[in-house]
Amino acid sequence: MTRRLRPVGLDFLERAPARLVFTAKAAASPEALYRALAEDVTGWPSWFGAVSLARPTGGGAGREVRLRGGVRFQETVLAAEGPRRYAYRVDTTNAPGLHALLEEWRLAPAAAPHSPGTLVRWTFAADGPAPFRLALAAARPGLGRSFRTAVRTLDTRLAAAPSRG
């Protein structure tokens, strides 16, 4: 059964009742990572293991995403600020317990002067009843592993791809 979630704005990233933040380092540039996140939406299943289908909708203003196991999302892109930020909110889903969900990917050049690459930060901001928030807290280690594996896989994929000029 598909349910409509509460629409939230970017300010929800800071005020969400459940907020998970993960970081990882990638060798790829912020520009290359941003292209993979925001412009090659259909490529997500090739590097993010939890994703079985991803495609843009509404001329790129939204996305349809399916996860392995059958969870489905219809999303609205709220920020597409290449090459530094990509954020989207879930509008409808078949996942139980969710009231609101917003995800943000932040990309920043590595801080060290002789350390090329990108610091990737993924924020998962959600709201739901207390049992959902407890389950999300328990899922934190698995979500973190999934994120770090996805970033490593994407980084490897980008390193192997012919460079775009």
Rank of each mutant, 00 (worst) to 15 (best):
Gly49Ser: 14
Pro17Ala: 02
Pro129Arg: 10
Gly58Asn: 11
Arg4Tyr: 08
Ser46Thr: 11
Leu67His: 02
Arg3Glu: 14
Pro17Leu: 00
Arg66Phe: 08
Arg148Ala: 07
Gly144Asp: 07
Gly58His: 12
Val71Leu: 09
Glu104Asn: 04
Ala24Met: 11
Ala18Met: 09
Leu143Val: 11
Leu10Gln: 04
Trp105Lys: 09
Val51Thr: 11
Thr57Glu: 11
Ala38Thr: 02
Leu5Ser: 01
Gly43Asp: 10
Arg84Glu: 15
Ala159Glu: 15
Thr76Glu: 12
Val71Asp: 08
Gly165Thr: 13
Pro162Asn: 10
Ala79Asp: 10
Leu107Gly: 05
Gly97Arg: 01
Gly58Lys: 12
Gly59Pro: 05
Trp44Val: 01
Ala54Arg: 01
Ala130Pro: 10
Tyr88Lys: 04
Arg148Lys: 13
Ala126Trp: 00
Ala161Arg: 15
Ala135Ile: 01
Phe73Leu: 13
Ala87Met: 07
Glu104His: 00
Ala112Pro: 03
Arg140Met: 07
Arg85Asp: 07
Trp122Tyr: 14
Gly43Asn: 04
Arg145Asp: 05
Arg55Val: 12
Val8Phe: 02
Val65His: 03
Leu102Thr: 00
Asp11Phe: 06
Gly97Phe: 03
Asp127Thr: 05
Leu98Glu: 00
Thr92Tyr: 03
Tyr86Leu: 08
Gly144Arg: 03
Trp105Val: 09
Thr2Leu: 15
Pro129Ile: 02
Ala61Ser: 15
Trp122Gly: 01
Ala138Gly: 10
Ala110Asp: 00
Gly165Trp: 09
Glu81Arg: 14
Ala79Glu: 09
Gly128Cys: 03
Ala112Phe: 06
Asn94Ala: 11
Arg68Thr: 11
Ala160His: 09
Arg55Trp: 00
Ser52Phe: 05
Pro162Phe: 15
Phe132Trp: 12
Gly117Val: 06
Lys25Glu: 14
Glu14Pro: 04
Ala111Thr: 14
Val77Phe: 01
Phe132Gln: 02
Arg84Asn: 11
Arg35Ala: 12
Leu20Ser: 10
Ala135Glu: 05
Leu136Tyr: 04
Ala50Pro: 09
Val71Arg: 04
Arg164Phe: 02
Pro56Gln: 14
Gln74Val: 08
Arg157Leu: 15
Arg72His: 12
Ala79Gln: 09
Arg145Leu: 15
Ala112Thr: 08
Thr23Cys: 08
Ala95Met: 15
Ala95Trp: 07
Thr123Tyr: 03
Pro131Gln: 14
Ala138Ile: 04
Trp44Asp: 01
Tyr88Asn: 02
Arg55Ala: 10
Gly62Arg: 03
Arg4Ser: 14
Thr42Lys: 10
Thr149Leu: 10
Thr123Trp: 05
Ala16Trp: 03
Tyr34Asn: 01
Gly58Phe: 07
Phe132Asp: 01
Arg164Cys: 06
Leu53Pro: 00
